[in-house]
C-alpha cells in the first residue's frame, strides 16, 4: 500500500495527511450515489411539491429515473459491502497478524485491538463532548482537543453505517417485491416503505446541513473544504479541529519547537 507522508510542506505551508486516495475514492462513490439517490428519490416522496416534477423529468421521468435510482442504490450497497471487507481486511492484516507474530493472539487481546482502532468510539470522545459544551457555553476558554477522529466525525461515519443497512435492503426488497413476497408477509412492505423513506429523509436533512456545515459551510472553510479532494488538511484547520493529533504528529516528526498554540 502506498505510504503517505504525515506532513507535506509546500510553499512554506504545512499540510497534514488525513485520507488515502483509496478512501477518497470510496467517499466520492458514496456521495455521488447519495446525491443521485436523493434527487431520484425525494421527488417521489414529495410528489406534490412544485420542484418534484422538474427534477424527476431531468432524470428521465418515471420510465428512467427508477432505473437510475436502483442502479445507484446497488452501487451504494456494493460500496457498503466493499468497505466492510476493507475494514475487516485492515483490521486483520495490521492487528491480528501482528498479534499472531508476537504470539499473543487471544480473544481478549483481539477485542482490545478492535476497540483501540481510531474509528471506534472511546472514552476520550465523551470527555471531548463535555469539553466542547464547556467551551461553547463560555464556561472555559479552552477548546476541546480532538484526536485524529473527533466524535463528530465518528458520528458522520456511523450515520451511513446505520443508514445504509436500513435503507439499502429495504429498497432492494421493495424493488424485488414480487420475489420477496414468497418469504415475507405483505405487511412487511409497508414497514420497509416507511423505513426506506424516513431514514432517507433523516440522512438528507443531516447531510445537507450538519455534515456540510462541518466540512464546507463553517467560517474557516466556506465555500469549499478541500480535504475530500486532496486528502491533506491545512495547519490552521488541523490546529482548529485535531489539536491533539497535531501536537503528536509535530512531535513525532521532530517539529516540537514549532508547535503553534491552539486558537479559538
Amino acid at each position: 500500500m502506498q505510504k503517505y507522508p504525515k506532513i507535506v510542506e509546500k510553499n512554506g505551508r504545512r499540510y497534514f495527511f488525513r485520507f488515502s486516495l483509496h478512501q477518497r475514492l470510496q467517499h466520492i462513490v458514496l456521495f455521488t450515489c447519495v446525491i443521485t439517490l436523493s434527487l431520484t428519490g425525494f421527488p417521489l416522496k414529495y410528489f406534490d411539491q412544485p420542484w418534484a416534477a422538474p427534477i424527476y423529468k431531468f432524470f428521465g421521468g418515471i420510465h428512467v429515473a427508477p432505473t437510475i435510482h436502483r442502479t445507484f442504490g446497488t452501487i451504494l450497497l456494493c460500496l457498503f459491502v466493499y468497505h466492510t471487507i476493507y475494514w475487516v481486511y485492515l483490521f486483520y492484516s495490521r492487528r491480528i497478524l501482528r498479534l499472531k507474530k508476537e504470539g499473543c493472539l487471544t480473544f481478549g487481546n483481539a477485542v482490545k485491538e478492535f476497540l483501540s482502532q481510531e474509528m471506534i468510539p472511546c472514552k476520550k470522545d465523551f470527555y471531548d463532548l463535555i469539553d466542547m459544551f464547556k467551551y461553547l457555553l463560555y464556561i472555559t476558554n479552552r477548546p476541546p482537543r480532538y484526536d485524529r477522529i473527533s466524535w463528530k466525525e465518528k458520528f458522520d461515519y456511523y450515520a451511513p453505517y446505520w443508514g445504509i443497512p436500513i435503507l439499502g435492503p429495504a429498497g432492494f426488497i421493495l424493488w424485488w417485491r414480487d420475489e420477496f413476497s414468497h418469504i415475507l408477509p405483505g405487511f412487511a412492505f409497508n414497514i420497509l416503505y416507511v423505513m426506506h423513506t424516513d431514514e432517507a429523509l433523516l440522512a438528507a436533512l443531516f447531510l445537507f446541513f450538519v455534515h456540510w456545515y462541518n466540512v464546507h459551510y463553517s467560517p474557516e472553510k466556506f465555500p469549499l473544504g478541500t480535504v475530500f479532494i486532496t486528502g491533506y488538511l491545512t495547519e490552521a484547520d488541523m490546529i482548529h479541529e485535531h489539536y491533539a493529533e497535531y501536537e503528536r504528529t509535530m512531535r513525532e516528526e521532530g517539529l516540537e519547537d514549532q508547535i503553534k498554540p491552539q486558537h479559538h
Binding site: R177, D178, E179, S181, G186, F189
Partner: peptide
C-alpha cells in the same frame, strides 16, 4: 410473480 402474501400489503 408474487405469492399470495402480497395481499397483506396495505
Amino acid at each position: 410473480k408474487a405469492s399470495e402474501n402480497l395481499a397483506g400489503y396495505r
